[in-house]
Structure formats: C-alpha cells, structure tokens
C-alpha cells in the first residue's frame, strides 16, 4: 500500500469526523487531533482493503508521535 493511500485513509477518517484533513507529515498526531481510536479505525480499514490481517508491534506503536510515524508504521505493516 502506498504512502499516499495510507494518508488518504487517515484523511477519510478525519473528514468523516468533521476534522481538517492532514497535509503535513512532520506535525504531531496530537496537534492534528488524530486519536487512538482513529488509529485503530485506519488499521481496520486498511485490513479490509487488503483483505488480510496486519501484524502490529506494540513497542513500535508506543513510539508513534508524528503523522510521519503513522505513515511509516502502516507502510511497514503492509509490506
């Protein structure tokens, strides 16, 4: 799954909840109001699109801070 497709999925979740779409990678998830529930919704939507379950590393998830971290995380998980 491409980085842009992952960002599009994030923005689908954001706009569905009436929030501004994310445009930059360097901002923190907190500052753009991308919450933990949004994170798991993105994961489940990606899995639905791919038709398979992803494997998540709990330790890696704890280090997520920025939008770039989220994109990196899902990019690695969908390889």
């Amino acid at each position: 799954m491409t980085r842009q497709e992952i960002l599009d999925t994030m923005n689908l979740v954001m706009t569905k909840k009436g929030r501004e779409p994310i445009t930059g990678e360097t901002v923190s998830t907190r500052s753009v109001n991308f919450r933990s529930l949004d994170f798991s919704e993105v994961a489940l939507r990606i899995e639905a699109k791919l038709g398979r379950e992803l494997t998540f590393d709990a330790a890696a998830m704890r280090n997520i801070d920025t939008v770039k971290d989220v994109l990196d995380f899902f990019e690695n998980a969908t390889v």
């Binding site: 909840k17 798991s40 919704e41 489940l44 998540f56 590393d57 709990a58």
Partner: peptide, 21 residues
Amino acid sequence: QVVGRDGIEGPVNFAMHMATR
C-alpha cells in the same frame, strides 16, 4: 459509541487493542 475526553469519538467496533487484536 466510544466517548472520550472530547465527547463522542466514533463507533465502538473500531476500538481495538492492536497488539492483541
């Protein structure tokens, strides 16, 4: 629905502990 510190956040079926699914 999930209610968080900022009000209703979304459907509860998206609430997942990802490491254990």
